[in-house]
Nucleic acid binder design. Sequence first.
DNA 1: GTAAACATGTAACAGGTTACATGATTGT
DNA 2: ACAATCATGTAACCTGTTACATGTTTAC
Lengths: 170, 170
Amino acid sequence: MSLRHALLGLLSERTASGYDLLKLFDTSLANVWPATQSQIYTELTKLAGSGLITVAAEGPRGRKEYAITDEGMAELRHWLTETKPQRTIRSDILLRVFFLGVLTPEQARDYLNELTRISEEGAENLRQLSESVDWGDDNLSVHGRIALEYGLRFNTMRREWAEWAAAQIK
Amino acid sequence: MSLRHALLGLLSERTASGYDLLKLFDTSLANVWPATQSQIYTELTKLAGSGLITVAAEGPRGRKEYAITDEGMAELRHWLTETKPQRTIRSDILLRVFFLGVLTPEQARDYLNELTRISEEGAENLRQLSESVDWGDDNLSVHGRIALEYGLRFNTMRREWAEWAAAQIK
DNA sequence: GTAAACATGTAACAGGTTACATGATTGT
DNA sequence: ACAATCATGTAACCTGTTACATGTTTAC
């Protein structure tokens, strides 16, 4: 149930509409917790229903500006401090590695080289994202940059590993 | 739909029952593609229904020994070579980082220190796993070791990042 | 005899994806 | 006038989790 907390987290910084949040997900959270339009609107309705957020203002085109409530802030803090992050990470990419033996060594190396490529691409995308965002000194900027550094290090690690792995084949 | 391919992949190496596969998931694939008992049995029934695997033998206690068919091998190879691995990775751990600003700097550092700890713990678990498995020179062993190396490098990267990140707070 | 391990199956629920559906406002 | 953007909502479907439910064989 992290989507609700992602929404609460974004609303803890400033008020926003579902549409605004959708955009925020696509830019800042896309690499960490992607969410679809349908999911966001449904969850916002639920959050408002349970009193964790409220409709602070209504604008043109049916726009609803949501704001986090004290209850919502309490829930956000509770999630951050009292609940353990879930460690279950499913990796399609890594699962495939287990079964490379059914391919020819050449095909297996192709796969690992492709991983090198997407790691480089991933790092490059993050670098571009880093340049396109105008970083302030608000909370989301400070911590967003820390998360971005993770992404860069992750991609470097994966590239080096994929290169090493390709050399192991045959 | 990677579960079906995980099952096909394991069955490509040797025949096995649902129970055997459950054990294999818990040991070799737990860190990459966890699956529950309920899920495995359901998927095996579906796979047998569509002809990608067959019941090669029946044993005591209703045991069904499954074997991959030629069709199943073709599907496995198709998945590995023709379809792109899904890159969507949801990380609860990283999502929380974005919102550390709602906590006190001390609490935020506590969280990052906890990440250091679980990274060390994760690496240690993998080292122990590495020792407890009797690695052969079969395909699954060779590629399992490559995946394990990924896990070790990943945990090292995350530990270093978490230490760096904790130093960035305040 | 009885506990542990072996062995399978199903139902209810939660979370996420894709597709459909609709309409208002702004900029050119 | 028209396109792009803003803005929300719902339904069908798929995957995964938790819990329930049942029965057999082996080892001590």
